[in-house]
Simulated scan of single mutants.
Amino acid sequence: MVHRPDTLEHAPLGRDSAYPEQYDAGLLYPIPRAANRAPLGIEEGALPFVGEDEWHAFEVSWLNGRGKPIVAVARFRLPASSPHLIESKSWKLYLNSLNQTRFASQTKVEETLVRDLSSAAGASVSVELLGVDDSELAPQRLPGECLDDLDIEVSDYTPSAAHLTTGDEVVEETLHSHLLKSNCPVTGQPDWGSVLIRYKGPKLDREGLLRYLIGYRQHQDFHEHCVEHIFTDVMQQAKPEELLVLARYVRRGGLDISPWRATPGLTPPSLLRLARQ
């Protein structure tokens, strides 16, 4: 059974945790999205975006019916409309609870993951189990123009929407940066990532946009909320007709998280994974 807490008070993140010996869906720790969305003016049931949180787990294993270990890489997709995200360490502990559990088939493993994760998130979660040499895991590059070679001076390492300025020209373009860094709100550990912004609307000042993204360097928040923060700030400041914000965060503890948020009709590049993930 999945617990549904309202705070991080009892979350396993930042605490010493024994690795489980038995399968236990109760290890999953849901966190309501609403508390972090409210300060951004985002109302549940009236989201200004569509999107998903895409997770990859590289430490997935179970036993087949004869006790032989099977290993895989798992891809999970949680809808942004789910009322809960799932705290990452609890997810890792849950996956480790499968290690000594026998399953009759891979299909049974997938069915178990779908059931437990969907219950925790409060919405349907999709699950794919990939082979460790699957071609879908091959590294690729972010599309569009990289901002990282801009020679700018930076002194502000907290996000400030004031840096997001526009001109009169209307453009449709894709920009990205590998300089995204935020920090875990519980442990303070750094979360490194790359971010892609695709939009149609008044042209964003490149230097201002890069300063804004670098501003997350000392910001403490979950990956999913950082992306929603970026989306909300760009929409409010630049007022584009279309907007997609995608972050590809570097793996930590065997898990990587890649949230994306977009105006309806836009979708992220498919099967996109970066070398440092």
Rank of each mutant, 00 (worst) to 15 (best):
E110Q: 14
T263M: 10
D156Q: 13
D53N: 15
S61E: 12
W192G: 00
L129S: 01
H229Q: 10
R198K: 14
G201R: 12
A138K: 10
L85S: 13
V245W: 01
Y19D: 08
K181I: 03
H163E: 13
E241Y: 10
D53P: 05
E207Y: 03
L8S: 10
D156L: 08
G122I: 03
T7D: 13
L272T: 04
Q106E: 14
I197W: 03
Q106G: 14
W260Y: 14
V125D: 02
S182R: 00
R198P: 09
D156I: 11
D53L: 09
S194G: 04
I214Q: 00
Q236N: 11
I230V: 15
Q189H: 03
L78F: 15
D168W: 07
H223N: 13
G45N: 06
R248I: 11
Y94L: 02
D256H: 01
E44L: 09
H56R: 12
P20R: 10
L266V: 10
Y216A: 00
L47R: 08
N183W: 11
T187I: 03
E111K: 12
Y23W: 10
P20H: 08
V114G: 08
S82P: 12
S126V: 03
L244P: 06
Y94I: 03
H84T: 07
R252S: 06
S126Y: 01
I42Q: 10
T267W: 05
P20Y: 07
G215P: 04
S126T: 14
K203C: 05
G41R: 06
I70G: 04
A275I: 15
E43H: 09
A25C: 12
G122A: 11
L78E: 11
P83K: 01
S17P: 07
V71P: 06
P48K: 12
V154Q: 15
Q22E: 13
S155T: 13
S105N: 09
K89P: 04
P202N: 06
Q218T: 15
E136Q: 14
E111I: 07
T165Y: 03
R102K: 15
P69D: 12
S155P: 07
P264D: 12
R33W: 00
L209E: 01
T174E: 14
G41P: 03
R33Y: 00
G215Y: 01
D53S: 11
E128V: 04
A72G: 02
K181C: 05
D233T: 12
L213K: 01
P32R: 14
P139F: 06
L255E: 01
E242P: 05
S194N: 05
L47S: 04
G45M: 03
R102G: 09
S61L: 10
P264G: 06
P240A: 02
A120E: 01
T165L: 07
E207S: 12
Y29L: 02
S81W: 08
T187P: 00
K203G: 03
Q100M: 15
R102I: 10
C184T: 05
H163A: 11
E207L: 02
M1T: 05
G122T: 08
D6R: 15
D151I: 13
Y157R: 11
L213R: 00
D148F: 07
M1K: 08
S160Y: 15
N36S: 14
P39I: 09
E54I: 15
T112E: 09
I31S: 01
K92T: 04
T101G: 08
P240V: 02
D148Y: 08
R77W: 06
A11M: 07
T7S: 13
A11Q: 07
Q236M: 07
E207T: 13
